[in-house]
Computed example of a mutant assay.
Amino acid sequence: MSEQGYADKRAYFDRMLTLYGRKPALEALRDKALECHALHLAHSNREGGIVGELINAAEQRGIPVQRHSREELARISRNGKQDQGVALDVICPAFQSVGGYLDTLDSARPQRLLALDGITNPQNLGMIVRSAAAGDIDGLLWARKGNAAPGPLVVKASAGTLYRAPVLTCPELPGALEQCQRHGFDVCTLESSAQTDLFAYQPQRHCVFVLGNETDGVSSKVSRLAQQKLSIPMNNGVESLNVAVTASLIAYAGRIERG
């Protein structure tokens, strides 16, 4: 395979989201707007009922059905306890690796990214995805290490916008942030003790806004990388906001910055 062919193949698989569970897979298969790569089934599944519906839906759309041992299926789904013997590869057109995004970065237009630093609640993740897709965010930096996986609970909480969201994947967040810094990004963390107001901050360069863990906030490793620390003004003794609400404020603060 040529170097370009390898790059194209890798970019294709970077756009792939693997769902698990029978009902989420069936809903995705029935959505003609979604491109599906393959349906994966465990040999142990009985052919009737919803499994039969899955097979029929895949065959009607010309989507390959691949059979696996229970152990192989668990490796594909990455959640053997909850996958119900079913996984489905969905192609999400706006997904890409952070490296691929940076290689084609439009340096003329300041970019605004959201980064996830230990967000483990799928409900929060889904709402963050929805805000990022709806608001003024150019990419959602999603590290596989430390964050919840983009599974069916996240899809549900995002109201399906996960399939269209500009997700940038990476193995772990600190290394990805350092990559961004080398491409001219400032790293901004949201911390309650920061003196600079989010709404007064007007970045002159590309910017990554980091959302920390629901309980512990931004990790120390990421905090040390930050060039700017921001806070959200609070009244009436309120100490903090839900991380998904914070994401919404960041997403729409960009409308003010960009006019």
Rank of each mutant, 00 (worst) to 15 (best):
I55H: 05
K81E: 01
D83C: 00
E27D: 13
A58Y: 02
L113N: 13
Q82T: 04
A134G: 11
H37N: 10
L41H: 09
R144W: 13
T104V: 04
L29F: 11
M127Y: 05
A7I: 07
R30W: 07
S131K: 13
S97W: 05
L17Y: 09
L39V: 07
F13A: 10
G21I: 14
S131H: 12
A94Q: 15
D103L: 02
A133F: 06
R112I: 03
H68L: 01
C36L: 00
R144T: 09
N147A: 07
A25D: 14
Q66G: 01
L125R: 15
P64N: 02
T18D: 11
A134F: 08
P110F: 11
S131I: 01
A7K: 15
L88E: 06
A87N: 08
F95E: 11
R15W: 07
M127R: 15
I91R: 15
K145I: 09
R109W: 13
G80E: 04
I137G: 03
L141R: 14
G100H: 07
G62R: 08
F13R: 15
A94N: 15
Q82F: 01
A42R: 07
G146R: 14
E72A: 04
G21H: 14
N147C: 12
G135L: 09
I137W: 10
F95G: 04
Q111R: 15
G146V: 09
G5A: 07
Q96M: 03
T104D: 08
N45M: 07
Q4C: 01
R78P: 00
H40C: 01
I50P: 02
L140A: 08
L125E: 07
L102S: 05
N121Q: 14
V98Q: 15
E72Q: 09
P64E: 04
H68S: 00
A7D: 15
L26N: 13
L39M: 08
L116G: 06
A33L: 03
R67F: 03
H37L: 05
G5D: 15
L105C: 04
L116H: 13
Y101D: 04
K23I: 05
E27A: 10
S97F: 05
A94S: 15
A94E: 15
M127P: 00
